[in-house]
Amino acid sequence: MKIGFMIIIAFILDLIFKDPKHIPHPVVMIGKIIKYGEISLRKIFRKGAVSETIAGTILTLFVIIISFIIPYIILSICYSINMILGISVEIFMCFQLLALGSLKEAAMKIYTELSTGSLNGARKNLTHIVGRDTENLDEKSVIKASVESVAENTSDGVIAPLFYMLIGGASFGMLYKAVNTLDSMIGYKNKKYQYFGKAAARLDDILNIIPARITGFLYVAAALLSGFNYKKSYAILIRDRWNHSSPNSGYPEAAMAGALGLQLGGPASYSGEIVDKKYIGDDDKEPNMEDIPKACMLMTIVSVLALILMILAKFAVLTIINYGL
């Protein structure tokens, strides 16, 4: 259970230090590889469904292989030198792969701006956690978008990295993060990336199948533990989990919508183009700025529950394997 101990330490470090700006982040480096890889491959492959799909698949495979091999080699060298050195470096890598602290910080900055009456400031901070256009959003829309992002990113930024790190350590966690970064950069269903980002988008969907569902049902449990409407959370999860373009994101968003009594989703503007998204949840009450810290609290509870349950599950599996129980 060495990896479980390391991830617990990494989890605590993430809550304390969040995302230190002065330390180079692996996602930034992965993003640069994707950016320059895309530029290079688009020069080699001409436009067209088949050629763009091939180019995007090559980029996807290259990025995930590099993202797995480099940390694997670094950790192998560190462990061969000294066990403590290896553990320390792996804890640091795991810490960088978790985003609970930074997600909470980003969402609470939006809340702080709203609480001081600065809607423009809230809109500006919202751009850090959503991909939609924010300049014309009213206060209610800013709140809804913030809650949606907290719910969706609980899976992508916390639960999924925990899941894959517990399976295969920091190297597996980095592999997942590479796929997730690829999806966030080229996995769009627009004219530019419809074919080029197809492989990245599909792989991201596959890797998030289990984590997203874990996240959704843990939101119901978190609602129960924190006094929110867990019955409504479960009901909306079951009813609206498919009301999202992603096969996975609807699970945490629906559970969050039910717990807070909000209606999320609906039409949104992306790069000046209105996307007609389905609604998730019932319009039980008007969005209130206090929904943002409530969402952050639920996210934290979900993350702690996931950490505990995943470590216990791994311990149980290892016990069965080792003792044949």
Rank of each mutant, 00 (worst) to 15 (best):
P26D: 06
L312A: 14
T57S: 10
V302A: 11
F45E: 00
L307H: 07
Y219D: 05
I81C: 10
V158N: 01
V150F: 05
A235L: 11
L75R: 05
V63R: 00
P20L: 09
F163H: 06
F17I: 02
A212M: 12
T300F: 14
L182Y: 05
G157Q: 03
S233E: 15
K294D: 02
K177Q: 02
F228A: 08
K232M: 13
E139P: 06
G261N: 01
L305S: 14
G31F: 10
G261P: 06
Y176P: 01
E139N: 08
Y164M: 03
I54S: 04
N82M: 01
F315D: 14
K232I: 11
E152M: 11
K43W: 14
A99H: 01
I74N: 01
N229G: 11
M108R: 09
A316R: 12
V63Y: 00
G258A: 06
N248R: 09
M297R: 08
A151F: 01
S246L: 10
K232A: 12
K314E: 13
S141I: 12
A49F: 01
D276P: 02
P267Q: 07
K192L: 08
M299F: 07
G121S: 08
A200V: 07
I8V: 14
G281H: 00
F228N: 06
A268H: 12
I9T: 05
G173C: 04
A145I: 10
K285L: 09
K35L: 10
G324H: 08
M6V: 04
A55Y: 00
V304R: 04
A106V: 05
T112Y: 08
R241T: 05
N208Y: 07
E286A: 13
L309A: 14
E52R: 09
L166D: 07
T116R: 15
I70C: 01
G272Y: 06
Q263I: 01
M83C: 11
L312M: 15
D284R: 03
Y36E: 05
L262I: 08
Y72M: 03
K177P: 01
L225Y: 09
I39C: 02
G265R: 07
E135L: 09
V27P: 04
T60I: 04
S40T: 12
D282S: 09
G121W: 07
L307K: 01
I65K: 03
V275Q: 15
G281T: 04
I214W: 10
V317R: 12
N190S: 03
T181W: 00
N243V: 03
D240Y: 03
L305Y: 12
A223I: 10
I70W: 05
D283R: 01
E52V: 04
E290R: 09
A10I: 08
L312E: 13
L307N: 02
V27N: 04
I320F: 06
T112I: 06
L309Y: 10
P211C: 10
